[in-house]
Design a protein around this nucleic acid. Structure first.
Length: 516
RNA sequence: CGCGGGGUGGAGCAGCCCGGUAGCUCGCGAGGCUCAUAACCUCGAGGUCGCAGGUUCAAAUCCUGCCCCCGCAACCA
């Protein structure tokens, strides 16, 4: 029986405009969400922004605005981009939302405190008075601050710490066997090994708060005026605050984006929970988050889906190198159509691995796969059919086009091997182009001609469905041209000739225009 | 001896877990077709599978050592 699926991405840090790394994650999660819906699961898909912290505070200072003004200006850039990428999210959480987010965070903090898992300890670090913050080895050159050319001084401050070090063994069990009957799977598996070796090196307690004097832009620690919550309790909690998990808003969490989805506890306790995140924050999601939930008496999520990073033309993206790819430019290149980019990311970046964004490659892929193979196939079949009046004949038996495609496809997507799924759609496309060349329908007449073309149209229907999670906009256009409606689920649609009432195709139009 | 990933024809990758003719995409060369978006189809050239040992009848695939590249390295989201 399908269980409800709750899928989330990491929440983005809005101190700058979104880049391709953000896009990779959202597209990955969106393909999963769309696949879950197609296979018939109830789905809730949540994204959001992590808006507190010193970086935002400082960026705002530099720009001479309040932190709130800064994030209010930048967050819409993210929301707007994801709309244009057809990211089908149901809920967007903002950590600055004092009505929807804060109460859950404060409640979780109190539960951890009540469980005796929070303790004041002194934190000693290297503090640069120029930067007005703690610095790390990375920030130093010859023991001096890169920015201010002076040695930082050792400073101690009181913080609340989350006693993670006590959970070494439990967390190890959680990832290998079970912790109180619960297990947490990490995809891909090599990340699991990495996490386990981290645990073996020993876990330290985690600083969960900062004195107000060094961090003011955040959620206040309950019952302590002098402390502000540090990122972990604030940001990670978004996954349950967006559900109003503790019922502090009487379940009245607005789900503005897609009202058909309700809020509430059933999306956590009774659902399969998947967190899609980047490899940089894997350790926090694999260790701190489950420990927090456990000690607060909340069940642990089912799996972590960890993606890699994107390089740009083979090099690490960085502002100083100036090779940061702005998603808007890519959308612009393809006339505002997000599908070439979605296709590129799904096809070129195997889930879990690092990938590369290359302009040359996205253009080549667009031309060869989308335009020449797919778009041209649809066009030639429809043009030939419409010359005969557009009527379809019996689809007969599968002329060995589909074969085991659907079985393999379902198996691949259910195991998050998305690139394999999209590859199967392309293989079917190639098979159609081969068949059309062998059968030469343009040289045939009457029923025999229509029969071949009808089978090709049927194959194209399957191709549209196979592509639906990846490039939904294109699939919808294909189905429309074929004279079909877009199905909500795949149920009853994957057999050869499943559309019994399908008698006629629509008008053909160019699917992918040449790019300038 | 910090941790992890990778090194396969010009480029980008799959194959490695479960050893047995080295595969895909792009590019290149030749041919075919003409329904179609100068698109499509077929064939071909091109590789000591990072290096060195070992196991085996047989290794890209297992084992050992080494070299090179890329991330991460603790609160830096």
């Amino acid at each position: 029986m399908p269980s409800p699926q709750y899928i989330t991405t990491a929440i983005d840090y809005p101190n700058a405009a979104p880049h391709m790394g953000h896009v990779l994650e959202k597209v990955l999660a969106d393909v999963c969400a769309r696949w879950f819906r197609l296979r018939g699961d109830k789905v809730r898909f949540q994204i959001g922004t992590d808006e507190h912290g010193v970086k935002v505070q400082r960026t705002a200072e530099v720009e001479g605005v309040t932190p709130k003004e800064l994030v209010d200006r930048i967050v819409p850039l993210y929301k707007d981009l994801y709309k244009r990428l057809d990211i089908s999210y149901d809920k967007f959480v903002r950590t600055t939302d004092q009505k929807e987010h804060w109460p859950t965070v404060i409640e979780l903090w109190k539960k951890l405190d009540a469980a005796g898992k929070l303790e004041k300890q002194s934190y000693t670090g290297l503090y640069c008075s120029g930067c007005e913050r703690f610095v790390t080895k990375k920030d130093l050159e010859d023991g001096k601050c890169v920015n201010h050319k002076k040695a930082p001084e050792e400073v101690s401050e009181e913080n609340y710490f989350f006693l993670l070090s006590q959970d070494n063994e439990n967390l190890k069990k959680l990832l290998t066997k079970k912790w109180d009957g619960e297990e947490y799977r990490i995809v891909p598996s090599f990340r699991e090994k990495e996490t386990l070796s981290l645990i073996d090196q020993g876990l330290d307690d985690v600083s969960f708060s900062r004195p107000k004097s060094s961090l003011s832009w955040g959620i206040p620690v309950p019952d302590d005026d002098e402390q502000t919550m540090y990122v972990w309790c604030d940001a990670l909690t978004n996954y349950i605050s967006g559900l109003d998990y503790f019922g502090l808003n009487n379940g009245e969490v607005a789900c503005h984006e897609r009202p058909r989805i309700g809020g509430g506890v059933e999306w956590w306790d009774d659902a399969e929970v998947t967190h899609v995140i980047g490899k940089d924050i894997a350790r926090f999601h694999a260790l701190i988050w489950p420990a927090m939930l456990k000690h607060a008496g909340v069940r642990i999520p089912n799996r972590l889906l960890i993606h890699g990073f994107l390089t740009s033309e083979g090099e690490k993206m960085s502002k100083s190198v100036g090779n940061v790819v702005v998603p808007d430019k890519v959308l612009e290149k393809f006339g505002g159509n997000c599908d070439p980019l979605r296709f590129y990311l799904s096809h070129e970046v195997p889930v879990g691995r690092d990938g590369d964004f290359s302009w040359d490659r996205i253009v080549k892929l667009y031309d060869s796969k989308l335009r020449n193979d797919l778009g041209n196939l649809l066009n030639r079949v429809l043009v030939l059919l419409n010359k005969e009046g557009g009527k379809l004949s019996d689809f007969g038996k599968d002329p060995k086009l589909l074969g085991k495609t659907w079985d393999e496809y379902k198996e691949a997507l259910n195991n998050f091997r998305l690139e394999e799924g999209i590859g199967l759609a392309l293989e079917l496309t190639t098979a159609c182009n081969q068949l059309i060349d062998i059968k030469k329908p343009w040289a045939l007449e009457g029923e025999e001609k229509v029969q071949i073309l009808s089978q090709l149209a049927e194959a194209l229907r399957h191709i549209s469905l196979l592509l639906l999670p990846f490039i939904p906009r294109t699939s919808e256009r294909m189905l429309k041209q074929l004279g079909l409606k877009v199905p909500q689920t795949l149920e009853g649609k994957t057999e050869w000739g499943a559309e019994k009432g399908w008698k006629k195709v629509g008008e053909s139009e160019i699917l992918f225009e040449p790019i300038i």
